[in-house]
Nucleic acid binder design. Structure first.
Lengths: 212, 212
DNA sequence: CGGCCGGTTGATAACGCTCAAATGCGGTGG
DNA sequence: CCACCGCATTTGAGCGTTATCAACCGGCCG
C-alpha cells in the first residue's frame, strides 16, 4: 500500500466541515485534533490524535465530514487514497475488521469524553484527560518514564475539556501545585500515573488496549 | 437471517459493563438507552435508541462492553447471533458496509453530544436534543405532525444532558412556557420544528440522514 | 384510603464564566 | 546581543448559571 507522506505546519487545517476527502489520513509525528465550531464561535475538540493513530478512517464510508481536523504543531502525516485503501481492505478481511474495530474504539472514546465533560468537575476532568493521553502514549511506546509529547496551547486544552482558558489555566495550576503533573514546553509529565489514575477515576478499559 | 424477538420490561438492563454479548440487538418498539455510571454514582446517558436503530452492532468487533444498555419503557427487541450476523455480512458486503456506516453515524452522534453538553447552555442544550430526536424519528417515519414517542423520566433527561433533575425540570418548564415544546405522557411535541431548530442551533448534517 | 415514587418548587452555595488588566516569553530587527 | 513587539499565559474581581439540600405536591397502585 503506497502512501504519500506530507509535512504540515502548525495550525494547518487538514480537513474542513463539509469536505469530501479522497484520502485516509494517518499520523506519523506531531499532534492532530478533530473539532467543531459552534454558531457563536465556541470550539469543541473531540479527539487528540497521537502518532500511529488513524484519525480519518471514517471517511471511507461517510463521505461528508461533519468535523474538521487540524495540526496543533508541525506534523508529519501519511495519505492513502480511498480506492487503494478499499482494495487492500477487500483483499485482507482481517485488516478491514481491525480498522472497523479501530473506528469503534474511537467511538468509545467519544462516549468517555461526553461522560467526562458532563459529569466531572474541572480538576478531575483534566486529570482524566491526562491519564487517557498517557495510557495511549504508553501503549504506542511513545512515553518515557511518565512523560509524553503533548504540545497544546491553553486554548486547545480548554476547548477539549469544555471550559474557558481561564479555568483551564487555573485547574492546571492546581494540579501542578500538588506535584501530580507538569505541562511545559509541550511535554506532559505524570509524577505517579497510578496515583493520578486513582484521583481521576480513570478506568482504561474504554481504550480497549490490547494486552502486549 | 433469523432473529429472536423478545419483550423486555421497563428499566430492564439488557447489557452491563463488562459483558461479552453473543448477540446483536435491534429495537422494534420502545426506547433503549446506553449509559455508564461514574464512581460516585452519576449516570451519563450516551444515546437514545429509537425503533429501527441497531444499538449494539459494535459488539461484533469489540467483544467487551464498556457501557450498559437499558430499556426506558417496556420494549420489543430483536436478537441476532454474532455468528449468524457475521455470515450474512460476509455474503453481502454492501450490507456490511451499511452497518459499518451505521456505527460511524453513531460515533458522529456521540461527538455532537459531547459538543452539546460541553458548549451549550441548559435551554439550548435541551432544545438541541429534542431536535435530534425529532429529526431522527421523522426520518424513520415515527413522527406525526411534530410529535414523537419519548417516554423518559426527568432523571433520564438530566442524565443525558449532563445536568441535575432540578435543572432539567426548570429548563423544560422554560421551554414549555414559551410554547415551543411539550413533553407529557411520554410524548414529545414540537410546536414549530424549524423555529426550534433555529433556537437550538441545530444542524442535522451530523445525523447523515439519507435523502428520501 | 394510604403509601410511594416521580415531579415540582424554594433557598442557598459553589463552581466556573466574564471582563479586564498585567505579566512573561519567543521572535524579529536594530 | 539587546530592545522591542506581539501573542499566549497568568492573575484579579465580580457575576451568573447550575448544583445542592430540603420540603412539598400529586398521581398511581395496592
Amino acid at each position: 500500500m503506497a502512501g504519500e507522506f506530507r509535512e504540515i505546519g502548525r495550525g494547518a487545517q487538514l480537513i474542513s466541515v463539509g469536505d469530501r476527502p479522497s484520502h485516509v489520513v494517518g499520523i506519523v509525528t506531531g499532534l492532530l485534533h478533530r473539532f467543531t465550531v459552534t454558531e457563536d464561535g465556541e470550539r469543541q475538540i473531540h479527539a487528540f490524535y497521537l502518532p500511529t493513530d488513524v484519525p480519518s478512517a471514517d471517511t471511507l464510508h461517510m463521505p461528508v465530514m461533519d468535523t474538521a481536523m487540524s495540526a496543533a504543531v508541525p506534523s508529519r502525516i501519511v495519505l492513502v487514497e480511498h480506492a487503494e485503501m478499499l482494495a487492500v481492505l477487500n483483499q485482507r478481511p482481517n485488516i478491514r475488521d481491525l480498522l472497523w474495530r479501530e473506528t469503534l474504539v474511537q467511538a468509545s472514546m467519544f462516549r468517555t469524553w461526553l461522560m467526562r465533560n458532563s459529569q466531572m468537575i474541572a480538576e478531575v476532568r483534566m486529570a482524566h484527560l491526562f491519564c487517557e493521553l498517557f495510557w495511549r502514549a504508553r501503549a504506542a511506546g511513545a512515553d518515557s518514564n511518565g512523560s509524553l509529547s503533548f504540545p497544546v496551547s491553553r486554548e486547545d486544552l480548554s476547548a477539549a475539556l469544555g471550559m474557558t482558558t481561564v479555568q483551564a489555566n487555573r485547574t492546571l495550576k492546581l494540579l501542578e501545585d500538588t506535584g501530580a503533573v507538569k505541562l511545559t514546553h509541550g511535554m506532559l509529565s505524570l509524577n505517579d500515573p497510578e496515583q493520578l489514575k486513582n484521583f481521576a477515576q480513570f478506568d482504561p478499559s474504554y481504550l480497549h488496549l490490547r494486552p502486549r
